[in-house]
């Protein structure tokens, strides 16, 4: 996983609140060494600080490892949460997976 030849996709759906803390934490621990990560939250409608802090931790780790992250957000409600949580400026955020993959693809070794 810790190479430049693949994109790791982490996918979560539904309402992400503190009740799903373990599950959310588990998903974000799946690819600790990935260099290109696509976080697909296109089917997420709500997320509280549990998910936001996981995203921010992922970003901090990615910066340390020179990894690239793209987030796909489908729901406008969730986009609003991301916006006022200040994450819009910290992440590359896309409406669909195609755009996110295009962002992650350059330099990908086949």
């Amino acid at each position: 996983m810790n190479d430049n030849s693949s994109i790791t996709v982490l996918r979560l759906a539904g309402e992400l609140d503190i009740g799903r803390r373990e599950e959310i934490h588990g998903v974000f621990q799946l690819a600790p060494d990935a260099r290109r990560v696509l976080v697909d939250l296109s089917e997420v409608t709500y997320a509280d600080s549990t998910t936001l802090s996981e995203l921010l931790r992922l970003r901090a780790d990615a910066q340390a490892q020179d990894a690239r992250i793209a987030i796909v957000i489908g729901s406008k409600r969730f986009a609003r949460v991301i916006e006022y949580a200040g994450l819009g400026s910290a992440f590359a955020i896309f409406d669909d997976r195609g755009a996110a993959l295009t962002y992650l693809a350059p330099g990908l070794q086949s």
Binding site: S53, L56, R57, R59, E83, Y84, G86, A90
Partner: peptide, 13 residues
């Protein structure tokens, strides 16, 4: 307005 949460990033703006 906007800004990153506190206690997560080293140098947030």
């Amino acid at each position: 307005c906007g800004g990153l949460p506190l206690g997560v990033m080293d140098t947030p703006e």
